[in-house]
């Protein structure tokens, strides 16, 4: 559905994005993940045809965004970082306006607007003035505006920013419900967001793609071996050495009164012996649990490696 090849964009001499390559299949929900200023918004602006690229090509639904921008725009719904709303307009009128701009025929206008209102949960506020709505509702109007013409591709730039937790969950559910009928790209710098909604993520940092895979694979790819966290009252060198000496233990990190014990992936775990060693050294075991490495750390590691690579 979306093919991006060797896409670059320069702001002056500085590249905002640097030779990006990725493709997205119909019906997929893909998360664009990266720290602020990584080039997420720039990429999205180019894919929507808002802004031309310096070099490289993008095709959406088979149309080139630069050569056939009108066809592309007809097939794309876009929610920019700041929702493009006319505060003095009524919700319903605004959606009608957005639909008309996107070539929705007059006969289907009412049905499409009603369906967009319903899907975004705006039916009760359809007669309200947009400027008087709360931030969460404004964001929903922004999303409704993007999907009112039933586009093949939906591009959502940080769709849940500034919402309260309940609203965030609602918006995520809404995005998930779009899978299959629409191809969705959403960007975020928040990990839970992407893990909660997307099937696949593309991690970008400093304008380059540093990883792209399914969430499960990306986590396991880096998360080799198992780590246990052992919290104690006081750390004793002797006890730590005893744990280090165990056959299945790869290494032990100490931070404060917490030991992070990494085990070799292919060895039978010796949890008993680890605890035993701690008890023998009278460290006073408070807690022992499996440390799951979150995607957060994977993300930090990826973006960190990237910046180290650039520095050296």
């Amino acid at each position: 559905m979306i093919e991006v090849k060797e896409l670059s964009k320069f702001y002056g001499p500085r590249p905002a994005i640097d030779r990006l390559n990725f493709s997205i299949q119909p019906g997929e929900i893909v998360g664009f993940l990266g720290p602020n200023g990584a080039g997420k918004s720039t990429t999205m602006k180019i894919v929507t045809g808002f802004m031309p690229a310096t070099s490289g090509t993008v095709t959406v639904a088979g149309f080139d965004v630069f050569e056939q921008s009108l066809q592309v725009k007809r097939n794309v719904g876009y929610l920019p970082e700041t929702p493009p709303l006319y505060f003095e307009m009524i919700v319903e009128d605004f959606l009608k306006f957005a639909a008309k701009l996107h070539d929705v025929p007059a006969s289907q206008l009412k049905a499409k607007v009603d369906s967009a209102l319903e899907r975004t949960g705006l039916t009760q506020v359809r007669k309200r003035i947009i400027g008087n709505l709360s931030k969460g509702y404004k964001q929903r109007v922004g999303i409704a505006q993007a999907l009112v013409h039933d586009p093949k591709v939906l591009i959502l730039d940080e769709p849940t920013v500034g919402l309260d937790p309940a609203q965030i969950i609602e918006i995520r559910e809404l995005i998930k419900s779009l899978a299959g009928q629409h191809t969705v790209i959403l960007s975020s710098h928040i990990l839970q967001e992407v893990t909660a909604t997307c099937q696949r993520i593309i991690v970008i940092s400093k304008g380059k793609i540093v990883a792209q895979d399914t969430i499960e694979r990306l986590t396991t790819q880096i998360n080799q071996g198992v780590i246990y966290g052992l919290t104690v009252k006081a750390t004793e060198t002797q006890g730590i050495e005893a744990i280090r000496a165990l056959k299945s233990v790869a290494h032990v990190d100490v931070s404060g009164n917490k030991l992070l014990v990494a085990l070799h992936p292919d060895q039978a775990s010796e949890r008993d012996q680890i605890i035993q060693a701690a008890v023998n050294a009278k460290m006073g075991v408070l807690d022992f649990a499996l440390e799951r490495r979150s995607l957060e750390e994977v993300f930090l590691e990826l973006t960190h490696e990237q910046s180290n690579g650039v520095a050296s």
């Binding site: 929507t48 045809g49 808002f50 009108l70 066809q71 725009k73 007809r74 794309v76 876009y78 920019p80 700041t82 493009p84 709303l85 006319y86 505060f87 957005a98 701009l101 996107h102 070539d103 505006q145």
Partner: peptide
């Protein structure tokens, strides 16, 4: 100023 121009510039209009 309100960036609503993004809607117009990403709509299929010339």
């Amino acid at each position: 100023k309100l960036q609503s121009i993004q809607l117009l510039l990403t709509s299929p209009i010339t």
